[in-house]
């Protein structure tokens, strides 16, 4: 079976800064792929490259066997109807109600009769336990409710490939766990391929089929959770061993600096020395 997502040597830059420097990965249908990495390492940028919001500066991203940037406008549209994206902050349209937000892709891309669309909207909202919020505006919802409404919108067309940017961030643990279960159901029932960016250790253990870890624009670990955990790269170790994280990396403390280079400690780079 063809891969649901193939990313091949993607390079992404903002101005002079290279954010992604040759990232490759594949995601199979029916697989939850978790993207890990420190804040600001380019996880959201990778998603944007995949869905065509930021065309890669080099390399290619193929969704469902097709490379978005090479398609005609019409084919782009039809490919995008098979892909759902849950944005980091929800990105619901602020001027229309939650129900209308969920209905939007259905109205625009299908010729379903209005009452069927209305029924689908209720199903999707009930699925994320927002049945009561159909007629509210996004500004009247809490952050977690907006996230769930955005998930209902992202899955309105039953996509084959779903991207979620930090679905659990800012949610209480219970809601976050419910969201995770929903993602797993979507995977199992519809064979959806799901790409999830997350920081929550609990989520990671619950949903991961395969994981990928980014650091400084490169993939530093790729495989099942056990394989990733077994990667000897210090940052991977630090990530999974939060307690040690502070000790293993990061700049020296004020104490180290004032003490100067101690025996057995690599000398810190010091401004002025080179000059």
């Amino acid at each position: 079976m063809a891969a649901a997502l193939e990313v091949d040597g993607v390079v992404a830059r903002y101005g002079e800064r290279t954010i992604l420097d040759g990232v490759s990965m594949t995601v199979q249908p029916g697989e939850v792929r978790v993207i890990l990495g420190g804040s600001g390492c380019g996880k959201s940028t990778l998603l944007k490259c995949c869905v065509g919001l930021k065309p890669p500066d080099a390399g290619r991203a193929r969704m469902l066997g097709q490379e978005l940037t090479t398609l005609s406008e019409r084919d782009q549209r039809s490919l995008l109807t098979r892909v759902g994206v849950l944005f980091q902050y929800g990105a619901l349209l602020g001027s229309i109600t939650i129900g209308e937000n969920v209905a939007l892709p259905l109205r625009e891309h299908t010729d379903l009769p209005p009452d069927v669309i209305a029924e689908i909207v209720r199903l999707k909202l009930a699925q994320v336990e927002l049945g009561h919020a159909e007629h509210l505006l996004p500004s009247e919802l809490s952050g977690g409710m907006r996230k769930r409404a955005a998930l209902a919108r992202a899955t309105a067309l039953d996509p084959d490939l779903l991207f979620c940017d930090e679905p659990g961030a800012g949610l209480d643990p219970l809601t976050s766990a419910e969201l995770d279960e929903l993602l797993l159901r979507l995977r199992d029932r519809f064979g959806m391929a799901i790409v999830v960016v997350t920081h929550e250790l609990l989520s990671i253990h619950k949903i991961t089929d395969k994981a990928l870890m980014l650091s400084q624009g490169k993939v530093i670990a790729d495989g099942t959770l056990d394989e990733v955990k077994a990667t000897p790269h210090p940052e991977v170790r630090a990530f999974f061993d939060r307690l040690a994280a502070g000790e293993m990396r990061g700049p020296p403390s004020a104490l180290d600096v004032l003490r100067g280079p101690a025996p057995g400690r690599p000398p810190a780079a010091r401004p002025g020395r080179q000059a």
């Binding site: 549209r77 995008l80 944005f87 902050y89 990105a91 619901l92 349209l93 602020g94 625009e108 891309h109």
Partner: peptide, 21 residues
């Protein structure tokens, strides 16, 4: 103001990935 607000809250991106120009 409306479009700028939609842009900074990623609503414009959301439209794009929903296949709405």
């Amino acid at each position: 103001a409306e479009i700028a607000t939609m842009k900074v809250s990623e609503e414009v991106d959301a439209l794009t990935v929903m296949g709405l120009d």
